[in-house]
């Protein structure tokens, strides 16, 4: 799929993984528009998911600049099997607790990943990561507030949160699925450290939050090497949704 060689080998793989993550979680969470637990939260979650889609658009645009492809074509014109988002984001919208659990696991992982890219040697990415980190700070605050509230409730809210974390646990670490081109990326100073090291940092941070709240920690990732390539039925459905307008008239100018 590469039209021109990227300035650093593997840059396209990294950008695609990040863009697909933001795109899929953004689209999944936008499903709450109109049905969130309360009006204010409905607006908040819709706005957060728009932020994620905005981040995805910026990352697809960077990727398009590297590969010579149209960013919209990258976002919408692939078959479901060609998406490279983490399997953590593949479990379907679920209930509110599932959404908060998934957002928490993803946002904390994304923030560790963005930190590892803060001083990236590829300047266009460094510029974008600086902006993304400023916005993600708010995202972390928002989802952290919800996690704490659901966890501190002795009733159904906590029960649902624990169930969601147990369901997502085996997939939680897939944000750090090793990239094929990870070696060259680290060597070129694009990525500060290998994904496996970032995952360790992330687990330490999540543990620091989860232990006092008595929440279940994510076990080791199942099939870690397939973390970004095996997408199930829930994603196929989501893909059908988010490509439906585009597929209805592929030649249309938007």
């Amino acid at each position: 799929m590469i039209a021109t060689a990227p300035p650093v080998a593997g840059l396209d793989e990294l950008l695609l993984a990040m863009a697909d993550d933001e795109f899929v979680i953004g689209f999944s969470d936008s499903e709450w528009t109109g049905i969130a637990p309360m009006l204010e939260e409905d607006v908040a979650m819709s706005s957060l998911s728009q932020d994620e889609l905005g981040h995805a658009a910026a990352l697809y645009a960077l990727l398009g600049g590297v590969t010579g492809q149209d960013p919209d074509a990258i976002a919408y014109d692939r078959e479901p099997g060609a998406y490279r988002h983490a399997r953590l984001l593949d479990q379907g919208r679920g209930d509110w607790a599932m959404t908060i659990a998934r957002r928490y696991l993803y946002e904390t992982a994304d923030s560790v990943r963005l930190e590892a890219l803060a001083d990236t040697s590829w300047q266009p990415l460094a510029d974008l990561v600086g902006k993304l980190r400023r916005e993600e700070r708010y995202h972390l605050m928002h989802v952290g507030a919800w996690l704490e509230r659901l966890a501190s409730n002795d009733g159904e809210a906590r029960h649902r949160l624990v169930t969601a974390l147990e369901t997502l646990g085996p997939h939680a670490g897939t944000v750090f699925t090793p990239l094929e081109s990870e070696g060259p990326l680290v060597e070129a100073g694009v990525l500060a450290r290998p994904m496996a090291e970032l995952e360790k940092d992330w687990r330490t941070r999540v543990t620091d939050t989860f232990e006092p709240l008595g929440l279940p920690l994510a076990p080791a990732t199942s099939d870690p090497w397939l973390g970004r390539t095996e997408h199930g039925e829930a994603f196929r459905w989501l893909w059908g949704e988010f490509t439906s307008v585009r597929r209805s008239d592929p030649a249309a100018t938007w």
């Binding site: 204010e40 939260e41 607006v43 908040a44 706005s47 708010y138 605050m141 928002h142 507030a145």
Partner: peptide, 10 residues
Amino acid sequence: ELAMHYAREM
């Protein structure tokens, strides 16, 4: 805390 979040969003 949530009032701050919602004020920010609105």
